[in-house]
């Protein structure tokens, strides 16, 4: 027996289907296929409200000014605000220029789904999930338990070999760089990561500021891998390499079964754009931190 709520939802969707069926029946005579594309938008039932993904470009010029809290973006003579109506200020000039370029490069409509740097800045400014620094670090390190490049397959043999050749060097690099043990596993439970590894990484991430951490967590969530993200932070991998390694099995399947532009290429480009934005964001927001690191290392 289903719980009452879901059955109610099902019942409603049945009603909706019936209504749609009636509408089909009451159509005026004629060739239904020819008129379908013209009439559907008018007759389709109202859906739950979703915010528009695009809106008209309402400004002409984008400029940058230096304020008290950092760099601000001006659209004509209005100041850019975050979704929670805070003033949009970023700590680095390069980031401000990149964000301004995003706004300036929108032609007739503003396409928010292509403005990854703006989105990341908004998230950092508003912190909509109200998380503390520790919580963000924990959320990022949690991915280590199910890190993509630590999960291995047992068959087919060519894929096993591919994963070994491509992923093992990265794990080795990370183990050496941070002096920890990570390892890999073919079990469904994943590798058993020692508690010390987690401690080391948590204390390493604690040296980053909140902005950089938001970016790190974003990249980890895109690549589904903590180790690959570390490779990007430490300039060990390029964005293209990290994305390729993250999608290794998919690339293998594409090699075998063929590439579909509207699914594979679409996802690849989106993942690349998001990963590149996150990586750039981390580097631009943590410039002082990395300088300190270098001095400690020497």
């Amino acid at each position: 027996a289903r719980p009452p709520r879901s059955s109610g939802a099902m019942w409603r969707s049945c009603l909706r289907l019936r209504d749609r069926g009636r509408r089909l029946l009451t159509w005026p005579p004629g060739d239904p296929t020819a008129s379908a594309s013209l009439r559907l938008p008018l007759q389709s039932p109202a859906r739950a409200y979703a915010p528009p993904t695009e809106r008209k470009r309402f400004y002409q010029n984008v400029s940058i000014t230096q304020g008290e809290g950092g760099f601000e973006i001006n659209l004509d003579h209005r100041k850019l605000k975050t979704p929670q109506a805070k003033l949009f200020t970023v700590p680095s000039e390069a980031l401000a220029i990149a964000v301004a370029t995003e706004w300036d490069s929108q032609h007739d409509t503003i396409k928010f789904y292509t403005m990854h740097l703006t989105t990341l800045c908004n998230t950092s400014l508003d912190n909509p999930t109200q998380r503390s620094k520790d919580q963000v670090i924990q959320a990022a390190v949690k991915f280590l338990d199910t890190d993509t490049i630590c999960y291995r397959v047992e068959e087919p043999e060519t894929l096993v070999e591919l994963q070994k050749n491509e992923w093992d060097p990265i794990i080795e690099w990370a183990e050496k760089r941070y002096g920890v043990e990570i390892g890999s596993s073919t079990s469904i439970m994943g590798p058993s990561i020692p508690a010390k590894t987690r401690e080391v990484l948590v204390s390493h991430l604690a040296s980053y500021n909140m902005w950089a951490l938001q970016g790190i967590e974003f990249v980890v969530a895109q690549l589904k891998s903590m180790v690959l993200t570390l490779g990007l932070i430490d300039l060990h991998l390029t964005v293209e390499q990290a994305v390729l390694l993250s999608r290794l099995e998919e690339e293998y399947q594409i090699q075998k079964w063929g590439n579909i532009e509207w699914a594979h290429d679409y996802e690849l480009q989106e993942l690349r754009a998001r990963t590149a934005a996150g990586t750039l964001f981390v580097h631009l927001c943590s410039e002082n931190t990395t300088v300190k690191h270098k001095l400690l290392q020497e």
């Binding site: 292509t114 300039l235 964005v239 293209e240 934005a277 580097h283």
Partner: peptide, 29 residues
């Protein structure tokens, strides 16, 4: 210098991918 070049390469990757993604989005989705 390497770090700066890395950032430039990441930015190039961002701009390229956004352009390709937008073209695919408009074509198919």
């Amino acid at each position: 210098q390497h770090e700066l070049h890395f950032q430039a390469a990441a930015y190039l990757c961002l701009l390229r991918s956004v352009r390709a993604h937008l073209a695919l989005h408009q074509e198919f989705h």
